[in-house]
Write a protein that binds this DNA or RNA. Structure first.
Lengths: 350, 350
DNA sequence: AAAAATTTCGTGCACGGGCACGGAAATTTT
DNA sequence: AAAATTTCCGTGCCCGTGCACGAAATTTTT
């Protein structure tokens, strides 16, 4: 049974004439080993092809690791709530590896809340961190600390360049805008489309949908150069005014039947679309929020482009946990999630 | 630190006034336990919420389990090859749980080859089996043996009813046909469509695409009742004749611009489409074979509906491994995979 | 050269569960 | 009721690694 002949720490202790304690010390290069025996052990490890037994290791350590997730909270059914759900699922799968996961929420509109959450997180002394960067300087000073302490961190949703992040999981934003345009027009010439956008008044916060918008515009220029692209700004906090604006717009432009939105809030205009079914013949939005899904299966929304915030979290947790427990580095640093196209006919098995 | 209070076998031994040996016996219901103490232990397990420590368990047992995968082999890039790739990936993730995965290939067109692979597989004495049922009786006699030996098995791709399978992972075939029709027509009325089908001459083998075809037809009846649906049979082994048939067909029906196929072989007609770009304005097929993907990104094929054979395998292996190692049963027995819609604009991040 | 300080190393227990062996308790037989 | 079974159960060692503690070896100091 050559296969069951596992090389253990004792084998290499015996081979070198040292004790398992010493071998252990070099394995974790935790010092207190003479150069001579260090090299002897390394040589024996190579020769015998030693590989540590993960189980024994986890058993002994008691596996008390913590992965801290620093990302916004959100109302039930919102984008970040979906992400949180994915986190919950992934939790169990790594719990058996002795890794716990804790969510440090903050208010995405409040920079102080972000700082506060970061401090609380550091106090918890995590072995790894997952974060959604929202404010550049805040994130940078945090990553400085993490790098200093040797704590690996991964970005989700968006990333900040040039820091030593372990991995990034997100969506190709530009490409998603391109795809959105294709889904909206069906590849056929369209005379006019309406893009509904959401007012942003948050200083210092970057708008992640700008790239998406760029992709959308480029597609239109390339495939539909004569199309008129209307824009309508809407305030999510005051949809009454928003609906009034829609009424007015369609009074002036009765020929528009194609509507798109670049963020996850397409559901905001669903009540209005419900009352004006002839207006939105083709409606495309983003993200599988509960409200969006519902509108999709009712046929109000034609298609949703989804990026699996839950899967992002799951993969991030997975990768980070492997790094912490097994010391493995992810095979790819930048991971672009695939974009799923959802229609009312494939949504039910989603 | 209430959180680090793991409930161990000794805790429940103490609680019941018994010893860990006895507790162990009931955990693996290996008998030699009086009814009274059996129930006491079970009660304590419930109350304390005991969960076995996988690592300790694997450490002690030496964790030598084998999952046998009984499914067809295939040329590189083919459907079953994709599945095999998914298997390879999943392999690593369970290897760390002490579970090995072995692929027992067979020739899907040869029933004897199937039998042969099944015998070889049984000889390997697996702890769990994953199989793609192709021949009804062969599969049934195999599952009889497995059930007798208490070996759990899961079906992928298609399933055979009424046997004690642990789980099933596959695609909702009917629904996929429905979706195919929607993607082909774009929800708009179409006058004529062409369905290219593949000749089957394999006796005793069931055609998994019949349900897909039914879904397609139902959609057309409901949304496009006036559409004429043409059928063309093609022999994959003789595409020269097939292309001639296509030439003839379009001579008679120059108004057809919508083409669909119900299996993964849309790539067969791609060379022909290449030479007749005006014919297939809208072409829809299934499955992310390399050849199909290529045709998609070149714009020859408009959309592919994909079912992730690789993900099927990954999930199946995952579920089976959890059952073997942890004794957990999957939360859902029949798992319909979601269907992904691929266009040339979202394919690159797939 | 002896004492002190420092570096290097070995020993032994812990982690949680599997399992064999033998002994105690309950049951059956004589 | 004592002996022989049978049923049931407890003890103890093992899996391979982590880590604390203290001892041995080496170097530095007096």
């Amino acid at each position: 049974m050559a296969q069951s002949e596992r090389v253990t720490i004792l084998d290499i202790a015996q081979r070198t004439g040292l004790s398992k304690g010493t071998v252990d010390r070099v394995l974790h290069n935790r010092g207190e080993v003479s150069k001579k025996s260090y090299e002897a052990v390394m040589k024996a490890i190579k020769e015998l092809g030693y590989e540590p037994n993960v189980y024994a290791s986890l058993l002994a350590r008691g596996g008390n690791h913590l992965i801290a997730v620093l990302m916004p909270g959100g109302e039930p059914g919102s984008f970040w709530d979906l992400a949180a759900r994915g986190m919950q699922n992934a939790k169990d799968s790594v719990l058996s590896s002795g890794v716990k996961v804790e969510h440090f929420e903050f208010d995405p509109t409040d920079i102080m809340s972000n700082r506060d959450a970061a401090v609380r997180m550091l106090d918890a002394n995590p072995s790894g961190v997952i974060m959604a960067p929202m404010y550049r300087e805040g994130t940078e000073s945090l990553t400085d600390i993490l790098r200093e302490r040797g704590i690996p961190y991964v970005f989700i949703d968006s990333k900040i360049e040039d820091s030593g992040y372990l991995a990034y999981f997100g969506m190709p934003m530009y490409r998603s805008g391109y795809l959105c345009a294709d889904m909206l027009t069906g590849g056929l010439p369209v005379a006019e489309v309406l893009v509904v956008r959401v007012q942003r008044d948050l200083l210092g916060q970057s708008d992640p949908t700008v790239n998406r918008r760029a992709g959308f515009m480029d597609y239109m220029h390339e495939h539909c150069p004569d199309c008129i692209i209307h824009n309508l700004l809407v305030n999510p906090a005051d949809m009454e005014a928003g609906e009034k604006a829609l009424d007015e717009f369609f009074l002036d432009h009765p020929g528009v039947h194609h509507i798109a939105m670049f963020n996850s809030r397409i559901h905001l205009i669903v009540p209005w679309l419900d009352r004006h079914p002839q207006r939105g013949r083709r409606v495309v939005g983003f993200d599988n929020l509960d409200a969006n899904i519902q509108a999709l299966s009712r046929g109000i929304v034609s298609a949703l482009i989804c990026q699996h915030p839950d899967e992002q979290l799951a993969l991030a947790i997975q990768a980070l946990s492997e790094c912490i427990v097994l010391g493995k580095h992810p095979s790819r640093r930048d991971n672009f999630m695939h974009m799923d196209i959802l229609t009312r006919y494939n949504v039910e098995y989603y």
